[in-house]
């Protein structure tokens, strides 16, 4: 089995045995539940604010899964094994990101539909919301890898990780929420796809550079 596939399966199994997407989805739905409680159940207000708020909740749910991503590998010595392996660390990092997206990003994407319905989003907009979330969570994971790798050796680095990653979330949020709200869909969708591809291509490289320093 190639190093990519091996890392991918190991990560998937670790994430599933750790409860999988259950906690992030619960977090996601809990965060969307707070919105009408704070804003009031006014239908027109929620209809306008719903899709963007689903996006913010998805971004926060991904953020919450990032802190332990590389910390566990650093603590138990897995990172040293990855560095010893003949496969490039960039590829292994990409595999970890891909596993995170499949285990958490995709379930969140699907949970986006009921969350949007609960926030009164029009039903004909649901496909846009789901497609935009699929691309957006990929972009979040890509840049999130960098933040997780940079803060892997920081104890209780959750707040620092969030601070580092939030400015990187700005472009996908802008275009993703635009797609979800149905504004200028084709242009925004192609730029969002560009954000996702760019983050998936560059994120693992920067994360691998940071991880090499962490094990020194």
């Amino acid at each position: 089995m190639s190093a990519f596939a091996a890392t991918f399966w190991r990560e998937l199994q670790l994430m599933w045995s750790g409860g999988g997407a259950l906690a992030p989805i619960g977090y996601f739905l809990g965060a969307t539940m707070l919105v009408p409680l704070a804003m009031g159940p006014d239908r027109a207000l929620l209809e306008a604010a719903g899709p963007p708020l689903v996006w913010i909740a998805a971004a926060l749910s991904i953020l919450a899964t990032l802190e332990r991503l590389f910390q566990a590998d650093l603590e138990d010595g897995s990172l040293d094994q990855m560095l010893l392996s003949p496969a490039p660390l960039e590829l292994i990092t990409l595999a970890k990101g891909a596993a995170l997206w499949v285990a958490i990003g995709l379930p969140l994407t699907l949970a986006g539909a009921p969350a949007a319905i609960a926030l009164q989003a029009p039903v004909d907009r649901l496909p846009f919301i789901v497609i935009s979330l699929a691309l957006g969570t990929a972009a979040f994971v890509g840049v999130g890898l960098v933040g997780a790798a940079l803060t892997a050796s920081v104890k209780r680095g959750g707040v620092l990780l969030t601070l580092i990653v939030l400015p990187l979330f700005a472009p996908p949020i802008i275009f993703g929420a635009a797609v979800a709200s149905g504004e200028d869909v084709t242009a925004a969708l192609s730029i969002l796809a560009g954000c996702a591809l760019g983050a998936a291509a560059l994120g693992p490289i920067a994360a691998a550079a940071a991880l090499r320093l962490q094990s020194e």
């Binding site: 840049v143 960098v146 472009p171 920067a206 940071a210 320093l213």
Partner: peptide, 10 residues
């Protein structure tokens, strides 16, 4: 330095 370069792209 890595973070600074990532920010310069971002």
């Amino acid at each position: 330095a890595i973070l600074c370069l990532v920010g310069a792209v971002n």
